[in-house]
Structures are given as C-alpha cells and as structure tokens.
Design a protein around this nucleic acid. Structure first.
Lengths: 228, 228
DNA sequence: CGCTAATTTGACGTGAATCAAACGGTGTGG
DNA sequence: CCACACCGTTTGATTCACGTCAAATTAGCG
C-alpha cells in the first residue's frame, strides 16, 4: 500500500517534512501505512529491531515490564512522533496503541539508507529525539513531587498540553488517554489514590469530569497551584 | 587554547569519534577546552543557547528549578556525554558541575556548520541523544516504584552502572556523585527517608558505606531484590 | 579551635497503601 | 428485553510507611 503524503495530516510536522518533494516521494515508495487497533502491539521488548515508524493518527504508549509483572509507562507518542531505534539490535520497550492508530512504517535498512542519503533527515530525527528527551524530562520532574495531589495535578496539566495542537495554550477539555491503572503506575501511586485525588480535584472545582475519560479544566490556576 | 584530541580520554566514545582524523582536527581548531569547578554552572535555564560541549572528565547534572524554589535533577552527564540544544533559542535547564570537570566546548554556529558538513556527526549526535533518552526513561522507571526502599536501591544500582566504564558489569565500588538532598529530590522522597533507607540497606548487608560518599556493593543480588 | 553545613538518628502524626466492598458500564446469553 | 457476569472505577475502613519536627553527630573550612 503506497503512502499518500499529500493528504497526510502530519506532513508539515513529521521528520520527513524536511525532505524535498521528490525525496519524500522516494522515501514514501519504500514505506507503507499500517493500522493498529487499540491495545495492539507495534514493537515488543526483546524483539529484533527491523523497522521504525511515524505516527500519523491515534496515540501510542512506550512501556516496560518489570520483573514483578507490573508495567509502567515511559513515554506517550502523539501524531507526528517517531518510534524506533537505530543503534540497538533489540527493542528495549514495548510499544502499544492506546487508541486506534495509523502509522507510516519503514524497514530499518531503508530508513538508514535514507538517513545516509539525505543529511537533513538525520538532523530532523535528531531534533525529534531531543524533543522526546525534553518530554521525558518533563515527566521525570513530575516524579520528584512528593504529594499525590501534586503528581496527579501535574500530569493532568501535562496531558492538557499534549492534547493541544498549539504548544502555547493547553487544551481546556480533553480525553485522558490512560486508564486509572496506567496513571497510577506512571505516577508511582495506587489506583485508589489516583481515583481519590481526581475526585478531590473535581470537588475543589479545579476540574470537571465528563464521561469516563473526559476532563475539563474548570480552574487551570487552581490546578496549577495544586501541582506545586 | 587548542584541543589535544590525541590524548583525550574519551576520543573513542565521544560524538566526534566518528569523524576522520583530518575532520576532527578541523573541528578541534574551532573548539576550546574549559574547566569547571565543582558547583559551577555551565548553562543557566533561560539563557540564550550559544554553545554546546562534550564532557571529557568529571560529572554534570541537568536540573530544573521549580516555582516553589526546590530543585530537581533531570539527568546526569558522564564523560563522553554531550550537552547542548540545537533547535531551541533558550536553555531549558541548568547544567552544573557535580565535581571538577573538563569540557570540550564549541560555539553553536560552529557545531551546526560541522553537522552540515559532516553527515556522520549528525548521526553520532542522534545516537548519543537516543542513549540519553534511554537513560532518562530508566530514571523514569525508578520513579514509578512505590516504596522508598525500592527507589533508593534502584538508584544505587543505576549509579553503579553509570560509574562503570564497561556497560556489561556494574562497578562494585563507586562514589555517589550526589548529596542526600539531591538524591531525595531526584526520588521524590525526603532527605531523612533517603538517609534511613541507605542505613537500612547497610544494616541488611546489601551495601557498605566507605567515607561520606563511597558505596560498596556487598550483596548485589540482595540490593537488586530490594529494588523490586 | 570554633563556626557552619550536611548527615544521621529519634519521636510523632499524617497521608497514602492495603484490604474490602459497592457501583457503574458493556457484552453475552437466555 | 432482561438477567448475569465481567471489568474498570469509586468509595470506605484500617494499617503502616513516610513526612514532619527536633536534636545529636559528623564533616568541612577558615
């Protein structure tokens, strides 16, 4: 199945956007689109790395499985994000679809050849990876907060930012892509504590729940203050 | 001051190691070495980004300052590590020397020109950044552990790995580069709790303290089990 | 030797984990 | 259409680990 870059929703933001039209067309010829249903695995930890991908729509989570069987989330991938390693033989983490997703997949050697041929592509991937690093560090900062209230508030703020298209203003209403269990393992808390904190934040008027997953920021300043 | 690549202790591991000798010599001519005393700041958050650097010896921390005045550590930089952003106008975080350090500093435009001229350099930096991303995610995994004991044990293991030159076998004895306060903010715990957990790990025979900062792994298996 | 800062240790209270149960939603079969 | 089971979430009661406050100890430095 060939790629339709012309109508791609992330054609201006993905790594490949730095290529000239004919270069991108050449890359598109060796790639293919793939659909993942919610819960489906793209890469499994330990598998040999054979491909990489740009996320076109949907959302992915990068997780690692501990010896004791618990899972925790290391990163979220949003549209235009890139997943895949180049310098390691085996995948270090699982990558799973959080919602139905569409990806642009390339075989590892094809992408490596493209990187060697188009220097701008390596730079674009460097940029993306530096952005991923920033995102990872932002999550790291959340973990250093002591109280459960602060952590939950901080992650809600983080999600509202991620849900927004414009990086300047966070989304006022959005859907939590994660279950309570995911949130809990992410924050180093228990499901019950997360649930109680969300309830408390709603009681205090900082947020409002709409449906199971919907969150609306009623008082962003109060939420922000709770995140201290 | 010119760079003496021939005697550089990280000449085989740093990003510049991928360059041909004459290319590296050309890069060296536009760079200079710099010494930092313990506690000195390399980059300050908010400052315009004008340079980048490879760490030759010593150790750095990347930290961010919260609104409430508390600091927390987002990353540690070890010799051969690279610090600096290319795609952002202002530094996002503080970078401070944990011990007396020697660096190889390049002006931003010089490095950008080198990246444009030598495609292998962009790839090497991409590799380094992906490694940084992995390290950041390893730290993120620590944060999701619930008990204080597990977090402290996990970070000791992490440091023993980082202190070792060979990635396969962790160092048996090493110096903790961080103060208790740094450890505490890193782990989302208090200074007292960190101190108590370290004392308890020593009492249980997992580790032994030597001097103020020295840690010896007496029973790595027990320590590893404590990290669950 | 005295000062200051960092670390350790102790006593105590609180907030989060744990255990347990109830409450929806959703799908399946009768 | 309803009954039922299943899963995720919420709520409650209890326990205990960690935070808080305070003091003792040690290290670092002029």
């Amino acid at each position: 199945m060939s790629l339709a870059c012309a109508s791609c929703p992330v054609r201006d933001r993905a790594a490949c956007s730095v290529l000239a039209p004919e270069e991108r067309a050449a890359l598109a010829r060796v790639g293919h689109t793939r659909h993942l249903a919610r819960g489906q695995t793209l890469f499994a930890a330990g598998d040999p790395v054979t491909s990489c991908a740009t996320l076109v729509s949907g959302a992915l989570k990068v997780t690692s499985l501990e010896r004791d069987g618990s899972e925790h989330i290391l990163a979220l991938v949003h549209p235009s994000g890139f997943v895949g390693e180049f310098f390691q033989p085996f995948a270090a983490h699982d990558v799973v679809a959080l919602s139905d997703s569409r990806l642009c997949v390339f075989a590892g050697p094809d992408m490596e050849a493209a990187i060697a041929r188009y220097p701008a592509l390596a730079q674009a991937l460097l940029r993306r990876t530096q952005e991923d690093l920033h995102a990872s560090r932002a999550l790291l900062a959340i973990g250093s907060k002591v109280s459960a209230r602060a952590r939950v508030a901080a992650i809600l703020i983080e999600f509202s930012r991620a849900a927004s298209d414009s990086p300047c203003h966070p989304a006022r209403a959005f859907d939590l892509p994660l279950s309570r269990g995911d949130l809990a393992s992410f924050l180093g808390l228990t499901i019950e504590t997360v649930s109680r904190q969300i309830t408390a934040l709603e009681r205090d008027g900082a947020i409002q729940r709409s449906g199971k997953r919907g969150i609306e920021l009623v008082d962003p300043a109060l939420l922000s203050a709770s995140a201290q």
